[in-house]
């Protein structure tokens, strides 16, 4: 065991001052130290994408970083996606298009696509589907996720 470090994780605009061992992965710190359990753990080796969050506006796998590396960064998780009672267009679209069943992979897909659309608001439909292949879902067969994301992306573009 090595000494714990004091770090500040800014999650959805709120500072969490926590003490972690350097080996603590970012997703473990977000879930355990900060109590934000909307971000899920599906594989811990970077393949499934259930732990996808936004780090300084970019979608990343939070199982493939150490919490100490995110000290001072702006983190956004699924809990910060809605604007109060108003769901993010992606969240509403997942509901409207039946883009989730068990819902375990959903936060990862939402943060992945929200992140991609923030980075590249004009990304092509093909590019979006390509990005969606980053994460795994076992329930939906992906087709409704694709529909949900393409519809939300079109709405978001129209609203600009």
């Amino acid at each position: 065991m090595s000494a714990k470090k004091n770090i500040t994780l800014n999650i959805n605009g709120v500072d969490h001052h926590v003490q972690v061992e350097p080996r603590r992965t970012l997703v473990d710190a977000i879930r355990d130290e900060c109590g934000q359990t909307g971000t899920h753990i599906g594989c811990e080796h970077g393949v499934c994408g259930a732990c996808t969050i936004m780090l300084d506006g970019k979608p990343v796998r939070s199982c493939l970083m150490f919490a100490v590396q995110a000290d001072g960064a702006r983190l956004r998780t699924v809990e910060g996606l809605a604007d109060g009672d108003r769901l993010h267009p992606l969240q509403q679209s997942f509901i409207d298009h039946h883009g989730l069943q068990c819902g375990f992979c959903t936060p990862g897909f939402l943060m992945l696509t929200a992140g991609v659309l923030e980075q590249e608001p004009d990304i092509s439909d093909e590019g979006l589907i390509d990005a969606l292949s980053s994460n795994l879902c076992r329930c939906t067969g992906y087709q409704n996720i694709i529909k949900a994301v393409l519809a939300a992306a079109a709405d978001m573009r129209a609203a600009r």
Binding site: R31, D32, Q36, T37, G38, T39, H40, I41, T77, V78, E79, L81, A82, L87, Q91, F94, I95, D96, H98, L100, G103, F104, T106, P107, L110
Partner: peptide
């Protein structure tokens, strides 16, 4: 009818409660 699911709002908000979420 293809009613929207009552299960969904909490799940899309990350408010689902899964076993590993309990300390």
């Amino acid at each position: 009818r293809s009613l929207r699911r009552f299960e969904d709002p909490s799940l899309v908000r990350g408010d689902g409660r899964f076993t590993a979420d309990v300390p």
